[in-house]
Simulated scan of single mutants.
Amino acid sequence: MNGLTELLKGALEGIVLQRISQGETYGYEITQYLVDNGLEDIVEGTVYTVLLRLDKKGLLTVTRRKSDRGPMRKFYSLNADGEAYLAEFWTKWDFLTTTMTALRGHQK
């Protein structure tokens, strides 16, 4: 859907963390996950920026390994802080969606 990028900026960290919580992964695989779930407007560079930000926040465990094809690749998994951050994200998300649905119900 066009025009989602701006709306998704605040949610993208949570979406990326959710994917990582499902098992160790790498940047391109996360990008494909987003595309497969209808978020084709999110480009690979954006995903790597989010991963860098999450790593700087101390939410990820990053392991460098040789890939089956090509050079070394960074693999990401959640650490305990990342799991707590993700749980907090979903709590905030639930509050926001409940509030937005209620506000929408007040339309005239």
Results as ranks from 00 to 15, higher is better:
residue 101 T to W: 13
residue 72 M to A: 11
residue 108 K to H: 13
residue 52 L to I: 04
residue 77 S to T: 06
residue 92 K to F: 06
residue 50 V to G: 03
residue 66 K to L: 14
residue 83 E to I: 08
residue 43 V to E: 07
residue 95 F to G: 12
residue 97 T to L: 12
residue 36 D to L: 07
residue 4 L to G: 03
residue 57 K to P: 05
residue 61 T to F: 12
residue 9 K to Q: 08
residue 101 T to R: 15
residue 47 V to L: 02
residue 36 D to I: 07
residue 34 L to W: 04
residue 63 T to W: 04
residue 22 Q to T: 08
residue 85 Y to E: 15
residue 100 M to R: 14
residue 25 T to R: 01
residue 41 D to W: 03
residue 30 I to W: 03
residue 4 L to Y: 08
residue 98 T to A: 11
residue 87 A to T: 15
residue 64 R to Q: 15
residue 46 T to E: 13
residue 81 D to R: 14
residue 100 M to Y: 14
residue 60 L to D: 01
residue 56 K to W: 01
residue 51 L to V: 02
residue 107 Q to L: 15
residue 8 L to W: 03
residue 13 E to S: 14
residue 56 K to S: 05
residue 52 L to D: 04
residue 100 M to I: 15
residue 75 F to M: 03
residue 65 R to P: 13
residue 29 E to M: 07
residue 3 G to T: 11
residue 32 Q to H: 07
residue 52 L to V: 09
residue 99 T to L: 14
residue 107 Q to I: 15
residue 65 R to H: 09
residue 56 K to R: 07
residue 29 E to R: 12
residue 36 D to P: 00
residue 36 D to E: 09
residue 11 A to R: 11
residue 72 M to H: 10
residue 67 S to P: 07
residue 58 G to L: 04
residue 31 T to N: 05
residue 95 F to V: 12
residue 41 D to E: 10
residue 55 D to Y: 05
residue 86 L to C: 05
residue 39 L to D: 05
residue 86 L to G: 06
residue 4 L to C: 01
residue 6 E to Y: 06
residue 63 T to I: 06
residue 101 T to D: 14
residue 47 V to Y: 04
residue 54 L to G: 00
residue 40 E to F: 02
residue 8 L to H: 11
residue 20 I to E: 08
residue 80 A to N: 13
residue 13 E to R: 12
residue 17 L to S: 07
residue 86 L to E: 02
residue 95 F to C: 11
residue 90 W to F: 15
residue 99 T to P: 09
residue 46 T to F: 06
residue 95 F to N: 14
residue 56 K to A: 00
residue 70 G to Q: 11
residue 30 I to D: 06
residue 104 R to G: 07
residue 67 S to L: 06
residue 84 A to Y: 10
residue 16 V to E: 02
residue 18 Q to E: 12
residue 85 Y to C: 14
residue 46 T to N: 08
residue 64 R to W: 11
residue 21 S to C: 07
residue 30 I to C: 02
residue 7 L to Y: 14
residue 83 E to R: 08
residue 67 S to H: 10
residue 93 W to A: 08
residue 92 K to T: 10
residue 83 E to K: 07
residue 21 S to E: 07
residue 66 K to Q: 14
residue 14 G to V: 01
residue 78 L to E: 03
residue 7 L to A: 08
residue 81 D to S: 09
residue 57 K to I: 05
residue 71 P to H: 09
residue 8 L to T: 05
residue 62 V to D: 01
residue 87 A to G: 14
residue 92 K to S: 09
residue 64 R to C: 09
residue 82 G to L: 00
residue 95 F to H: 14
residue 65 R to E: 15
residue 15 I to N: 00
residue 86 L to D: 03
residue 42 I to A: 05
residue 107 Q to V: 15
residue 97 T to E: 06
residue 48 Y to I: 02
residue 91 T to Y: 09
residue 67 S to M: 04
residue 24 E to A: 06
residue 91 T to D: 13
residue 30 I to M: 04
residue 86 L to M: 05
residue 50 V to Y: 03
residue 9 K to L: 08
residue 14 G to C: 03
residue 44 E to F: 12
residue 93 W to M: 08
residue 91 T to N: 15
residue 4 L to Q: 09
residue 69 R to E: 11
